[in-house]
Simulated assay, not measured.
Amino acid sequence: MAIAAETVAHFNQPWAMTFLPDGSMLVTEQRGQLVHVSREGEKTDVANMFEVAYGGQGGLGDVILDPDFADNRYIYLSYAESLDGGATRGAAVVRARLAMDDGKPALEDITKLWHQQPYRVGKGHFSHRLAFAPANAEHAGDLFITSGDRQKQDPAQEMDNSLGKIIRIKPDGSIPSDNPFTDDGEIARQFYTVGNRNMLGIAFAADGTLWAHEMGPAHGDELNKIEAGDNYGWPVVSNGDNYSGVPIPDHDTRPEFNAPEVSWTPSIGPAGFVIYNGDMFEDWQGDGFIGGLVAKAIVRVTLDGDNSKEVARYGWGKRIREVEQGPDGALWVLEDKAKGADDDSMDARLIRLTPAKEES
C-alpha cells in the first residue's frame, strides 16, 4: 500500500499527542510545554502550565482526554517532578480542565492524582504512559498508568514501592477496592501488575484487552498482554541481558512469570503505541503500531494472544516517539528530537499518514 505523508507542524522534543473532539490536537513537549495544534497546523502554547523536572528521560510526558471530555473538559497529563528542587525525581499524573476562552487554551483546576513512591535519584525510566479503559473493558472508565522501574531493577518485584508496575486508579485518583494486590500493603493497593521495566506504550484493543510494551535492557524489548495480578518477571528474567554483559535468565526458564507475546532482539526501542480501529486503512484494523526509537521505523504487529507477531516494519530514518490515530482514521507520527540537536531545535515533525491516491 502506498502511503502519503504530510508534515503538519514542527516541535522541540515532543513526547505525546491526543485529539480533541473538533479535530484539533494537544501535543506535549518534554521541556514542559503543552501545545494546542489546530486542524490547519497552527500552534498555540497552552497557558498556566505547571513546572516539570526536565532532563534525561524526564519532563512533560503523556496527555489523554477524560472519557467524558465533551461534558467536563478534563485532560490528564503525566510528568516528572522533583519535590526538593534537585536530583530526586519521580513520575506524577495530574488532571486539569482545558479552557478555550476566546480561542486561547489554558489549564484550570489542576489537581495531582498520583505519584510514584518513592522518588529516587536519576533521570530515567519514568514510563508514565496513560490509558483509559473503554466501555467494553473489564474496568471501564478506570485510568491505567505505566510506572517505570527508574533504572533501579529490584523494586519492580517489591510491594512497598510503585516502581516497575502498572497502576490502576479511578479518574478522581481514588483506588479501586478490587485491585489485585490490595492485601499486599498500602502502596500495593494501586498495583495492577508487577515486574515491569520501562513501559512507553499502553493501549486497549477493540475487544477491551489491554496491551503494553516495554524496553528490555540490552535487547529483549517486549509486547505484553496485560492480565490483572500477573508478574512480568523483571529483573529476574528477560529476553535481553544487562548492559554490563552479565546474562539474565530468559523467560522460558521461569514459567511462573508472564512471558511476552512478542520479543525483539535486536532492540527496536519501542515508544508510543496505538491499536488501529479506523476505516482509512481497512487492512490494518486491529493491528498495533509501535514507534521505534532505535529501529527508526514504525513496527506493525498483529495481536492474537500467543500468535501475536511483527508483520511489517516501515523504515523512517529518524527516531519515532509517538504514533496515534486521528478522528478520520489517518495515522499520525511524532518524531523524536534528533540526537545532537541544539536546545531550541524544532526539528521533530508531526506527520499525517494517509493512503496515497493512485495515479490515473
Score class of each variant (00 low, 15 high):
70 A>I: 14
43 K>A: 12
33 Q>P: 09
31 R>C: 11
72 N>D: 09
62 D>R: 02
43 K>W: 12
30 Q>K: 12
53 A>R: 05
47 A>H: 14
33 Q>F: 13
76 Y>S: 01
72 N>H: 08
55 G>D: 03
73 R>P: 01
37 V>Q: 01
59 G>E: 00
32 G>K: 01
43 K>Q: 13
65 L>A: 06
63 V>D: 00
57 Q>I: 09
64 I>H: 02
35 V>K: 04
67 P>A: 09
42 E>Y: 14
58 G>Q: 05
57 Q>C: 11
40 E>Q: 12
60 L>Y: 01
31 R>F: 13
41 G>Y: 05
31 R>A: 14
74 Y>A: 11
45 D>Y: 15
46 V>C: 08
38 S>A: 10
33 Q>W: 12
63 V>C: 04
75 I>Q: 00
63 V>T: 05
62 D>N: 11
63 V>F: 07
66 D>P: 07
51 E>N: 14
66 D>K: 05
69 F>I: 05
33 Q>R: 15
32 G>D: 01
54 Y>G: 04
67 P>C: 10
40 E>M: 11
43 K>R: 14
31 R>L: 13
53 A>Y: 03
64 I>C: 06
40 E>F: 10
38 S>Y: 03
48 N>F: 09
66 D>C: 10
63 V>H: 02
42 E>D: 15
64 I>T: 07
65 L>K: 02
38 S>E: 03
69 F>K: 03
74 Y>L: 12
35 V>N: 06
74 Y>D: 11
67 P>F: 03
72 N>M: 09
73 R>A: 08
61 G>Q: 04
56 G>P: 06
75 I>C: 02
75 I>M: 02
39 R>S: 13
56 G>S: 08
51 E>S: 15
62 D>T: 05
36 H>N: 10
47 A>I: 11
34 L>N: 00
52 V>R: 00
33 Q>V: 15
42 E>M: 14
48 N>W: 10
37 V>D: 02
45 D>L: 15
58 G>M: 04
70 A>Y: 11
57 Q>E: 14
48 N>E: 10
71 D>L: 14
40 E>S: 13
53 A>G: 07
36 H>C: 08
66 D>Q: 08
29 E>T: 04
44 T>I: 14
54 Y>V: 09
49 M>Q: 09
73 R>C: 04
69 F>L: 07
53 A>Q: 07
31 R>V: 13
55 G>C: 06
66 D>E: 07
30 Q>D: 06
63 V>G: 01
49 M>Y: 08
69 F>H: 05
41 G>H: 05
37 V>K: 01
63 V>S: 01
76 Y>Q: 00
57 Q>V: 10
61 G>D: 04
74 Y>T: 09
39 R>E: 12
52 V>M: 02
33 Q>A: 14
52 V>C: 03
42 E>V: 15
76 Y>K: 02
44 T>S: 12
72 N>P: 04
66 D>H: 10
48 N>L: 06
71 D>H: 14
65 L>G: 04
72 N>Q: 07
56 G>R: 06
34 L>M: 08
31 R>I: 14
45 D>I: 15
48 N>Q: 10
51 E>H: 14
40 E>Y: 11
43 K>I: 13
38 S>V: 03
51 E>D: 15
47 A>W: 12
40 E>W: 10
60 L>S: 00
62 D>W: 02
46 V>A: 05
45 D>P: 15
69 F>G: 04
38 S>M: 05
41 G>L: 05
64 I>S: 02
37 V>N: 03
75 I>R: 00
34 L>I: 08
72 N>W: 05
72 N>F: 07
49 M>A: 08
76 Y>I: 02
